[in-house]
Computed example of a mutant assay.
Amino acid sequence: MARMKKADYLGEVVKHIEISKHNVVPLVDAMNDMAFSARDLARAARIYNLMLADKNCSVILTLAGSLFSAGLKKVVVDLVRHNMVDAIVSTGAVIVDQDFFEALGFKHYKGASCGVDDNELRRLHIDRIYDTFIDEDELRVCDDTTRRIADALEPRPYSSREFIEEMGKYLSKHARNKDSVVLAAYEARVPIFVPAFSDCSAGFGMVAHQWNNPARHMSLDSARDFLELTKVKIEARDTGLLMIGGGVPKNFTQDTVVAADIMGKAAPMHKYAVQVTVADVRDGALSSSTLKEASSWGKVETTHEQMVFSEATLAVPLIAGYAYHKGGWKGRKPRKYSDFLNKGTR
C-alpha cells in the first residue's frame, strides 16, 4: 500500500464564518426565553450590544485559544472593520500562527481528531490542532517573515503593539489574503497587544533575529505592553470587555484598572464584561475565574457582566452576529488608539 502524501491530508480548507450573512437576532432573542447556557448567551449578546451603543464606552476584545484556525477569523475582521472593537489583547498563536499566517497566503485544513496517525503527520511536516491540519513548512515561512521584519527595525525595545503594527505595515504591501485582523487593525488604527509574544511562531523568528544579531537587535518589552494598555484604559475611562477564552489576555486586560490606580490615575472598573470559556471554575485558575470574582479585585463591575460556558466556535458567531445585526455599533466614533499611543502621551 502506497504511503500517504502531504497533499492527501491537506485538501479541504477550513472556511471562516461571516456574521454579516446570518441574521441571528431572532434565534438569540428566542434563546433568552430558554434556560441555562442559552439564556446566558442571549444576555451576553445583549451586553455586547450595550457596550457598542454606549458612545462613551471603549471595547477591548481578548482572544485566547485556537480561534482563527477554527474559522472565527472573519468574525473578528468584521468587528474591526465595523468599529465594534477599539483594542485587542491576544495570544501570539491567534495573531501570528493563524492570522498573519493566512494573510501570507497559507491555509488551515480540515483534519480529524481521531483515527489519524500523528507520527505519520510528523513525518509529513503536518501539525495538528484537534481536527485541523497545518503545513509545518508554511509555518516556517511565517517564522522567517517575522525575523525579516525584526531585522529591518531599529535595534531597541518595542512593545508587542509596536511590532504588530510593523507586521500590519508589511501586510499592507505584501498580503496575499487581505481578510486579516492584523491588516484590518493596522488600517483602522486599532492596537493589538500580545503580552506573551514569544510564545508563538513569531518567537522562533525573534530567536533567529537575536541569534544572528547578538550585539544589535530589537527586543520586546512586556512592561511597555502593560503601560500602553493601561494608558488606553486611562484615556478611555469607560470600557467593556469581550473575552474569548481566558489566560494571559484576560488577566492582562482586567489588571489595567489596578495598574492605573498604582500610577495614581483614576480609572473606573470595567463597566461591561462578557467571557466565553470552557474552563472549570473549581480549579481556581485565572481562565475560569468568574467576572464576579474579578469584582473582588476591583477590576470588573457586576451590573453588566456575563459568563458563557461554551466552546468559542459555537458562542462567538451568535454573540458577535447578534450585536452586528442589532446595530448598536452604528455611529460609534473610532478611537484610533494606535495613533494615541504613537504620540507617546503620558
Rank of each mutant, 00 (worst) to 15 (best):
M51F: 12
T91S: 14
A45G: 07
L104I: 03
I19H: 04
T91M: 08
H16R: 01
A53P: 07
L67A: 13
S69V: 12
I19N: 00
I60R: 03
M51W: 07
L27C: 00
A45V: 04
F68D: 12
V94K: 02
D54H: 07
N49G: 07
L41H: 13
L63N: 06
F101Q: 03
F101T: 06
V75I: 14
D33F: 14
C114G: 12
M84N: 03
H108K: 04
V76L: 11
I60G: 01
R46T: 14
S66E: 04
F106C: 02
M31Q: 08
L61G: 08
F68R: 02
D33W: 10
D86C: 04
V76S: 02
L67Y: 08
V14L: 03
L27T: 01
P26Q: 05
A42T: 09
A93T: 13
Y48N: 07
P26T: 00
G11H: 11
K74Y: 11
R46M: 14
D40P: 00
D29Q: 10
A30Y: 05
L67D: 02
A64F: 12
A44K: 02
G71W: 10
D29I: 01
D40C: 14
C114L: 11
R39N: 13
M51N: 08
V85W: 10
V96I: 15
K74I: 03
L63H: 06
